[in-house]
């Protein structure tokens, strides 16, 4: 069947929600960085190892890569179609007054997140997979050491904090938007899910944001 706008949207919603789910896993892992220093190193390195071995985890990680790429590619297609649908530009445009700025600027927020991801992948994922890392006491690659050392730099922390904020606003609209695309219309439940989405976004955002700050102020490599 011909791909309609709604199928594009369904792909955005499905990939987006999967990424939302992944963020929870990721955050749970990262929270281990907040454990007392002695436990944190081995715990975190063990968890990192776990996420790179298992076949199920492997499958999930491929779904993750696909989701990321799919989400980005389809957003681009959607944006192009929308630009075409706009026709001529308004000379004087105050339409922004009637909707939230983040809902209108998902593309920009998404681009910030994409740039962040490139940095993030390069510094950790690539290093972990292909780089030469020292081992910890248990024989796992010592990712912990790299994490702690990178967050000693103020500008690096700042990049992360800004990106997390962008992620937060992206989620704030994205989660709700995805549930609507999936067809949630009941006034009562739509509202409940919307509130859940807000709580989720806030928890994820602040959950991620606190870690670099904690490391910057409390831990030294």
């Amino acid at each position: 069947m011909k791909q309609t706008t709604l199928i594009y949207k369904l792909i955005m919603a499905a990939t987006g929600l999967f990424l939302c789910f992944f963020l929870v896993i990721h955050l749970l892992g990262n929270l281990q960085l907040l454990l007392p220093e002695s436990e944190a190193r081995e715990q975190f390195n063990w968890y990192s190892h776990l996420l790179s071995g298992n076949i199920i985890i492997k499958i999930i990680s491929y779904v993750l890569y696909l989701s990321l790429i799919g989400h980005a590619v389809y957003s681009l297609l959607i944006t192009l179609k929308n630009k075409k649908a706009n026709g001529t530009k308004y000379v004087y445009d105050k339409r922004a007054k009637v909707s939230n700025w983040n809902s209108r600027n998902m593309g920009i927020l998404g681009t910030i997140i994409l740039i962040f991801l490139i940095i993030h992948f390069k510094d950790y994922w690539y290093v972990y997979k292909f780089g030469n890392l020292p081992l910890d006491a248990k024989g796992n690659k010592d990712l912990y050491a790299i994490v702690i050392s990178s967050f000693q730099q103020g500008w690096y922390v700042l990049i992360y904090e800004i990106s997390f904020l962008a992620l937060g606003f992206h989620l704030l609209h994205g989660f709700f938007s995805a549930t609507r695309t999936l067809g949630l219309y009941h006034p009562k439940y739509a509202k409940a899910v919307r509130i859940f989405g807000w709580i989720y976004s806030v928890v994820i955002t602040f959950g991620f944001m606190q870690i670099p700050i904690y490391i910057y102020f409390n831990l030294h490599s």
Partner: peptide
């Protein structure tokens, strides 16, 4: 007809 996608801005 050439209408765009809904991105749920609710404007």
């Amino acid at each position: 007809e050439g209408f765009g996608h809904c991105t749920n801005t609710e404007a």
